[in-house]
Simulated assay, not measured.
Amino acid sequence: MYKDVAISFLQTAQWLNGNVSRELEPLDLTAQQLKVLSIVAQSENQQATVSQIKTQMFDPMSNVSRLLNKLMEKKLIMKVRNVEDQRLVHIQITTLGLESMCLGKELMDQGLSPMAKLDESEMETLSLLLKKMRS
């Protein structure tokens, strides 16, 4: 029984991820890049270290360095070296990065809109079950 549920769960996650990816395409952003922008934007002074970003990523296999380089190419973030310790690099979000993050979150919500088919009670139950699985 649990195998059928597990397959359905994975298919649904992949389907939702595909919806989000399609919505983010016009911004040329991935969900992981959007997550990095959100982490930096929500950090103190809208800047974070690479290790802070790594610890907050959901995907432990994410290549944060590659993600940061892509975001820098797009001028959504910038790297700033600490004056006192040149080894310490702070990642700061740019104005364009903030705008892209806000629009990206709206588009992501559109990609997740099928979840609106669930009523409040169903959403609460789903949330509790997902948390239980992760614990």
Rank of each mutant, 00 (worst) to 15 (best):
Q47C: 00
A6V: 06
L16S: 01
Q92D: 03
M78F: 15
M133L: 15
S121Y: 04
M61C: 10
S135E: 15
A31N: 05
T12Y: 03
N45G: 01
L103T: 11
T30E: 05
K74W: 12
N69S: 15
M1F: 09
L96A: 15
T30L: 04
L76W: 14
A13T: 06
Q11C: 06
S135W: 11
A48G: 01
K132E: 10
E106H: 15
L71M: 14
L107C: 08
P26R: 03
M123S: 04
T94G: 08
Y2E: 13
I53F: 02
T55D: 11
K75T: 12
S62W: 07
M57Q: 09
I91K: 01
L10N: 07
K132M: 11
I39G: 00
L88V: 11
M115E: 05
R81I: 06
E124D: 05
K117C: 04
K70M: 10
M61I: 10
N19Q: 06
D28R: 14
P60N: 14
E44S: 03
S100T: 13
K75N: 15
L129H: 09
E23K: 06
Q47Y: 00
G18M: 03
E73H: 12
K131A: 01
S135I: 11
L129S: 07
I39D: 02
L34V: 02
V83P: 10
N17F: 06
S100D: 09
T125A: 09
Q14S: 08
L129F: 06
Q47D: 00
G97W: 05
I7G: 03
V80A: 13
L118D: 03
M123E: 02
S62V: 14
A6C: 06
S8W: 04
L71I: 13
G104A: 12
E44A: 03
T12A: 04
V80F: 08
M61E: 15
E84L: 14
N17Y: 10
D109V: 07
